[in-house]
Simulated scan of single mutants.
Amino acid sequence: MTDLTLNVPHGYRLNPGTDLLDLAARLRETMEPIRDRIEIEQIAEFAAKALDAADLAGTPRPESVIFDAVQAQTVHVGQILSGEHSCAPNMIKVAVTDDPETGEVYALVFPKQQAFAQELDEMELGDYYPYWKEEDVDQPRPTGVSPPNGRTGQRPGPGSCAAPTRWSPRACSPSKSAPPTRTPI
Rank of each mutant, 00 (worst) to 15 (best):
L125C: 03
T2P: 03
P111S: 11
R151Y: 08
M123P: 05
P169L: 09
R141E: 07
G144F: 10
P179N: 15
L6P: 02
N149M: 05
E63F: 07
E135N: 08
T183Q: 13
S175L: 02
Q73V: 07
P156E: 14
E124G: 08
D22P: 01
P62T: 12
Q139L: 14
Q71L: 11
T102I: 09
A25H: 00
I34S: 00
I38P: 05
I40H: 11
R61S: 05
P130I: 12
Q73R: 15
L4Q: 11
N90S: 13
L51D: 07
L21E: 12
E119D: 13
I38R: 14
V105C: 04
P89R: 01
E104F: 13
S86Y: 11
S82V: 09
E134W: 06
M91K: 06
Q114D: 14
D121M: 11
L125Q: 02
P16R: 12
F67S: 12
E134G: 11
G126Y: 00
K176L: 13
A162P: 01
D68H: 09
D36P: 04
T5Q: 10
A171E: 12
Q139E: 15
G17T: 00
L6V: 07
P184I: 14
A171C: 04
D127Y: 05
T143L: 12
T181V: 15
V65R: 14
M91N: 09
H85M: 13
L4H: 13
P111D: 06
S146V: 14
E104P: 02
L6T: 15
L108P: 02
P164L: 03
K176D: 07
R166V: 06
L4N: 12
E84N: 13
P130G: 08
K112A: 10
P169V: 11
I40Y: 08
R13Q: 11
T59A: 14
P142L: 01
P180L: 05
P169N: 13
P142I: 03
M91L: 15
A44D: 15
I43Q: 06
P140K: 09
Q71W: 10
A69G: 06
R26Q: 07
